[in-house]
Design a protein around this nucleic acid. Sequence first.
DNA 1: ACATTAAGTGATT
DNA 2: AATCACTTAATGT
Length: 217
Amino acid sequence: MKKNLTFLKEQLHLHFKDVFEKKLINEIAKNGTYATYEKNDILIDIGLEMTHIPLIINGLVKISREDTHEKEILLYFLEEGDTCAISFVNCIHLSKSMFRATAEEPVECIMFPVNKIEEWMINYKTWRVFIIDSYHTRLEEMLSVIKDLAFFKLENRIYKYLSNQVKIKHTDDLIITHQEIANDLNTSRVVISRILKNLEQEGKIKLNRRNIHVSKY
DNA sequence: ACATTAAGTGATT
DNA sequence: AATCACTTAATGT
């Protein structure tokens, strides 16, 4: 779908006025093309060479990657004002995409050619800030997901550990310190204390000094 | 009573 | 989740 220059400028002004300086907006308008995608359309696919990168005007784009068993792993979503930060590395190294971008909802975006990235990086401060900010946001997002996963895992590990102790020791009242558990599970005592407290509030165990009572299910 | 050890808390990374 | 820096509670001598 071809649109003229003034239309692109208009759109960029509408959605990126606070992000990009005027000269850069003109530059993007000159080099970019307007594109729309229906739900489930693929904007960028794995293994394909990337020629253009989208700036999202509105809609929702799912960024995913395939895991070892050809199952899709969701990484994150792109919304209005976002771009696919993760693909900049691919572009700079002229490699193929490691990710898939699918329209989760109908999408309007401006596709700009990858060969402009470096040039804009040198010439426009607002572009540099935009790229680095995108990276930062994505990194934070992923870190917090990893954190949650790890936490979920440890609570389970601790509970399994306790259940196993009950079985081995043939008693529901375990004489054990938080520190000892921490040593066995290779974490710190403080963390164990906190998670045990959670388990207690969930009613799964009862805490006393040097003693943990494991409730029956 | 005083020191030692176990557990709890809040803030930060 | 991990670490730091304290605080509080329980115990041993």
